[in-house]
Design a protein around this nucleic acid. Structure first.
Lengths: 118, 118
DNA sequence: CCTTCATATGATCATCTGTTCATATGTATA
DNA sequence: TATACATATGAACAGATGATCATATGAAGG
């Protein structure tokens, strides 16, 4: 990495702070994973799916019905949610039931809502 | 909205659940805002900026230096962060100092990191 | 007031994302 | 084991997004 950038005259005295900040910065990979996680929450369809699953576990078909969307669209998004370990699933008869994997999800969404609600 | 979708035979008995779920679903606009908020966190550059600002408030130029990125790129992202009220700024001499607006930010990022760390 | 310097902005381009449509997969049950 | 039905998948297309480059803005300090 190159940390020698165009630095304004007023700020180039701050070398110490820069160094400390860089030292505290989590590893690139963690930051990448973190951004990826937030990206998953950053879509209305996926947010809706999660909200629905707050209320009740549900098969793909019901999710599609509940959100008035295509089965395919829902299925594609469930895949993303599952990859991020935000939801899990199990087979039940002919259907596959999806459910929240984790209670982090609720906390994160609640926290977000709090910010938005202001 | 249309809630009459192709419903699987096994699930069409679940009309009650669907209705309850739809009733509990927050208004479209809130969901949209929420997704938008998470979208802001869903980018490595912006996450990095936030992490840096955890340590210390800082001028644009120092942020660019700390992250080894263009002033322009940083400025564009700061705009996004400010629109979402995640950061604030003030003028100080020639520089403009950016800082975290809120403590939600820390909580949200920590929560995300916890999930990712598993 | 006029220059200088830090920051902001706009256009552009390549990349990424989400939906749709068509179709594949695979399990359950007759 | 054949087929019907729920779900998954792949290609393709439209819209969104982030970095870059060039340039505008505008306050500070002479």
């Amino acid at each position: 990495m190159e940390f020698e950038a165009e630095v304004c005259s007023e700020c180039e005295t701050h070398a110490e702070v820069l160094q400390k900040v860089q030292a505290e910065l989590p590893p690139e990979e963690s930051l990448y994973d973190l951004a990826d996680l937030f990206k998953v929450f950053g879509d209305t369809t996926r947010i809706k799916i999660l909200y629905v699953l707050f209320e009740s576990e549900m098969c793909v078909c019901d999710l599609a019905a509940a959100l008035g969307m295509t089965q395919s669209a829902i299925s594609h998004q469930l895949r993303v949610l599952k990859q991020s370990k935000l939801v899990g699933n199990r087979r039940e008869g002919k259907s596959i039931i999806y459910f929240l994997a984790d209670d982090h999800v609720r906390v994160m969404i609640d926290q977000g809502m709090e910010h938005v609600a202001e």
